[in-house]
Design a protein around this nucleic acid. Structure first.
Lengths: 203, 203
DNA sequence: CGCCAACTGTACTGACTGGTACAGTTAGTG
DNA sequence: CACTAACTGTACCAGTCAGTACAGTTGGCG
């Protein structure tokens, strides 16, 4: 009693996926306050079915957003890893990694997701924590540590350096409403990496 | 008809101030969705009185938030101006200005206000615009321009440089939920200014 | 193929909110 | 001091939404 089990079976799986897809879109578009009726309609599903799969709107939100969060962050990590270590030119290497980093975090969906998590962080503190702990910065901290170990960088405090690099190349996309254009984005990366290396590379 | 005139007189002024004060606190605490009843209660005022002064909840929000926005930004500007130009040591001068800048924008109220404006930017686009146009960055752009004109800096693109300096010293406070502690805040400023000057001061 | 879990649609409850009506009270100003 | 704008408190309307009840339908799995 109380804890009903979620429906299972091929049909149920399909419905569940449809609900999650629709809910994500609706949440990103209108925030947590979208009505469950609208989500159900967008999923082509009865409202009761939504409540058969997720026993409250809050749990639906948790499942949908945290799922997307995990996936997106894994994608960021994959991209940044792929761009590191394939060259001896540190500058070019770092610029490439930053391009992937910024690109992965500035898709419309990721920006909307970040805003959503920030907005609802009081109602769902766990989501904010998840963003910070398995967050994008952690990914890049590993990258910096690698460059440090290889001796090409001399970074005393990796966490501080990550904050600085993020501040230089990424933060302008996050703090403003409208995102900088492609030209400015690239200038921020190239000039930012220059500034960063000028400070942390002692020849 | 339609456009009722706001109440006037000494009593009305007091009530109005109480409403604005309470509304600001409640909006910052719980967002636009706080009930008008709660605002009225917090102001020690009847709900009808609220509607006598502001003919809709949306207009109340506009008046309260934009008023606070103007005041806070003016305060930032005043502080930064006061910290500039009183020394020949550019580094110390810039560090002082950044300290004022960061301090003025990271009070709990300012952080909450920023979040609130960001959240409701779709319902109240004007507020988001106001933040950007008369925003804190504009203040600092003037400061950089002054240092540039005095010949101590060589900044080709002031807007880019402001984004970078803001990214280095300010953005860590804005993008995370929890704000960095006092020690980290100061290290961000000092090291950030170092990095910034290393790039923009050609001796 | 037949059964039962899963689904649909509608209608409902209960709670809440923005905004208004109204009748009576308070207090600043001419 | 008296007049009236401004204020109070309560009661009310209309709309919305999370979540449930119920009776009937569908479709996948044993």
């Amino acid at each position: 009693m109380g804890e009903r089990t979620a429906p299972s079976g091929t049909r149920a799986d399909g419905k569940r996926r449809a609900i999650v897809r629709a809910a994500l879109a609706e949440f990103l578009d209108a925030g947590f306050d979208v009505s469950v009726d609208r989500i159900a309609a967008a999923a082509g599903v009865s409202k009761v079915t939504v409540y058969n799969h997720f026993d409250s709107k809050e749990n639906l939100f948790r499942a949908v957003v945290s799922g997307q969060l995990q996936g997106a962050l894994a994608e960021v990590e994959r991209q940044v890893e792929a761009r590191l270590g394939d060259s001896d030119d540190v500058r070019a290497e770092l610029v490439r990694a930053c391009r992937s980093w910024v690109a992965a975090l500035t898709t419309p969906d990721m920006l909307a997701l970040r805003t959503l998590v920030a907005v609802e962080s009081r109602r769902f503190p766990e989501l904010g924590e998840a963003w910070l702990e398995h967050g994008p910065n952690v990914v890049f901290a590993k990258a910096l540590t690698r460059l440090n170990d290889r001796g090409v960088l001399h970074v005393a405090d990796v966490d501080l350096a990550v904050l600085q690099l993020a501040g230089l190349v990424l933060s302008p996309h996050l703090v403003h409403g409208r995102t900088p254009g492609k030209r400015l984005t690239d200038r921020l990366i190239v000039t930012g990496v220059d500034m960063f290396l000028g400070h942390y590379v002692r020849s």
